[in-house]
Design a protein around this nucleic acid. Structure first.
Lengths: 209, 209
DNA sequence: CCTTTATATGAGGATACCCTCATGTTTTTA
DNA sequence: TAAAAACATGAGGGTATCCTCATATAAAGG
């Protein structure tokens, strides 16, 4: 009932042993970093446990000591990123309180998209087919809630009834913007992103009823 | 140099033998249908050639007779869907010529999103990691071009300079709408899609300069 | 120091997958 | 009808992956 995510159970059945000594803590951290790199480059499914171990400077046995399954690795990484993002959004909500929607959207886009670009492994594990749909839904709901809180703090206020669905749309647009940057090339990318932000701001500032 | 896609070369090197007799034509059709089902359920990477053959009512050997690689299967499926979609958009462009942007967007959303929902294998092969980026870019450009043509035919006309980037945004929003339907649940999905369409229409009808 | 617990290691078992190939069957051609 | 070409089949080779396990080292406790 405290802060971060001690839940977010991996798959189930096989329970990963958490590290207790400081050496173990460092190892899992290194393992997650290595996994991030491999997932980012190869995607979840093509990533291999051997690659992850090598990239982390650990043996395959050490990897399996803490993560009995590739799924467990992805789940841990997912949870770690969600916690970070949630914290970032909480901070941001405080910063933009009382500001205009335009300013809030600009800040939100800038930071969120930057995060997704800097952490491609997050998208990789977020969209893997093996991710439990319930966990996926919960993760989206969590981010949506944070965005709704952020949108609810701008001035002049947005009609309360619209905040929820606007938050949903905003979250998806952010994802699109991130995918845009990865997919298209510069000539079509830049104007498209500008168009996306303009569109969102116009819509959010639009008729409140 | 005529109509459909005799290009769209699979990977390369190994060239698939095209069927010449009618039996062969039926077989490749059945194989692509089976592949569609398997790709839709399992995704490209987890799909196995054995599953595809079984689902198609063919032996593994027959599958490899026409598609020397899983990549070839995906490439063929991709090309087939692109041709179908392009044709659909051409028809639609004719239908909405002279209509309002609102009507055009409604029709476009309805048909395109329905197509993506009815053919989940298309998204699966479109987003597989092994897809050659050049082919991916070309595919997007093709669809974008069709949408631009469609948007260029509405009345009153949209400023010509904006059409290209608006088409890009529209294409991405359609994808988001399709993903929305697959991901979120009903309570958040319906209002979010409505919001997306409203937003796009408002933006497209907005200030022309 | 000695016992106990945590962490480390890499060879290899089990499995699944991609794809080949030798052989058989159907259809076309002459 | 006979020869040729296209298509069909499934056992199995080669390989790669996930994961286990017996064993070894480092750290903590008493």
């Amino acid at each position: 009932m405290s802060s971060s995510s001690q839940n977010s159970s991996p798959p189930a059945e096989k329970n990963a042993k958490a590290p207790s000594r400081s050496r173990g803590l460092k190892r899992v951290s290194a393992l997650l970093d290595g996994a991030s790199a491999v997932f980012a480059e190869a995607g979840y499914e093509a990533a291999t446990m051997t690659q992850i171990a090598a990239r982390s400077g650990a043996s395959i046995g050490s990897l399996y000591q803490f993560f009995p399954t590739k799924e467990h690795v992805a789940a841990a990484l997912h949870a770690r990123h969600l916690d970070t993002l949630a914290g970032m959004l909480d901070l941001l909500a405080g910063e933009v309180r009382g500001h205009s929607v335009e300013a809030a959207v600009d800040a939100l886009f800038a930071r969120f998209v930057a995060y997704l670009e800097d952490n491609p492994a997050f998208l990789a594990v977020s969209e893997r087919r093996s991710l439990d749909p319930a966990v996926k839904k919960e993760a989206r709901a969590r981010l949506r809630g944070r965005i709704a809180a952020l949108l609810g703090a701008v001035e002049p206020p947005i009609a309360e009834a619209r905040v929820a669905s606007l938050a949903a749309v905003t979250l998806h647009l952010i994802r699109v913007a991130a995918m845009l940057r990865a997919d298209d090339d510069e000539s079509v990318r830049a104007p498209a992103i500008a168009e996306l932000r303009t569109m969102l701001k116009g819509h959010l500032a639009g008729q409140p009823g």
